[in-house]
């Protein structure tokens, strides 16, 4: 299988503190890769190194075949990113946000027009498209944010806790969007705290205190730990954590 993300002993230190410690893994093209871990485990830190926002302290990694130290500009052309903070402009309308992000990714006016019509239709936002994003409910904001992150058809999309604080129904709809994206060939790298969502992933890794403690399909992990649910797998690993939740 073709690996679109490869890391080898990837490490990030902040002074004496090691936020991400020697993590080594591969993500295959077209899969949904769940990146799990308790609060403060180092998920966001790892994701920021992969997206070129932060320089690793040591180790190596490639994303879409490009090196995270030297080729961040080329990585950027191949990825989409939805950060842990909500990150659309609340003082712009739905359409303005779509047009803006489509614009800075260099999409043509025609492509933006087509995609935004389709997207607004798909999300059921047709009647709100002239509304300011700030006025939308959180669930819709998150769905819009995801759609904007994959607007330019990236190879890989990084989602950092995309469903935080959203009700179960909306979370289901959100995952429908993720599946729709993978069916178009997008590889999904996603962090989450919800164990039911972990079950939706093709493979998952579980981070504890900066290190990857387990990595496999949900099925294999449950078998390996001799438990019936991802919840229990996670609990078994995470209770060893020393880092206090923040």
């Amino acid at each position: 299988m073709e690996a679109v993300i490869k890391t080898d002993k990837l490490t990030k230190r902040f002074g004496d503190f090691i936020a991400t410690n020697n993590i080594t893994f591969e993500v295959y093209a077209g899969e949904i890769f769940g990146f799990l871990g308790a609060n403060g485990a180092g998920k966001t830190t790892a994701m920021r190194m992969l997206t070129g926002l932060s320089t690793p302290s040591s180790g190596s990694a490639t994303v879409a075949g490009f090196d995270v130290y030297r080729e961040t500009e080329r990585i950027k052309k191949n990825i989409g990113y939805m950060s842990q903070k909500f990150s659309l402009y609340e003082d712009l309308t739905v359409m303005e946000n779509i047009r803006f992000f489509g614009g800075i990714y260099g999409l043509s006016d025609k492509a933006i027009k087509e995609k935004s019509d389709m997207l607004v239709e798909q999300l059921g936002l047709a009647s709100e498209k002239k509304k300011l994003v700030g006025a939308l409910p959180l669930g819709w904001k998150q769905k819009l944010s995801f759609s904007v992150a994959v607007l330019h058809d990236p190879k890989i999309v990084f989602l950092d806790e995309p469903t935080g604080g959203v009700d179960p129904l909306t979370r289901r709809q959100f995952w429908d969007l993720i599946y729709a994206a993978t069916s178009r060939g997008v590889t999904v790298f996603v962090t989450t705290h919800y164990m039911d969502e972990a079950e939706y992933c093709n493979r998952i890794s579980i981070m504890v205190d900066g290190s990857i403690k387990a990595l496999d399909t949900p099925y294999n992990l449950k078998r390996e730990f001799g438990v019936g649910s991802m919840d229990e797998v996670f609990y078994k690993l995470a209770r060893e954590a020393r880092r206090s939740a923040d």
Binding site: G52, Y81, S83, S87, E90, F101, I104
Partner: peptide, 13 residues
Amino acid sequence: ELGTMEILLVSPF
């Protein structure tokens, strides 16, 4: 503060 800077810096812009 809003986090949009990250999105901008991750874009090819």
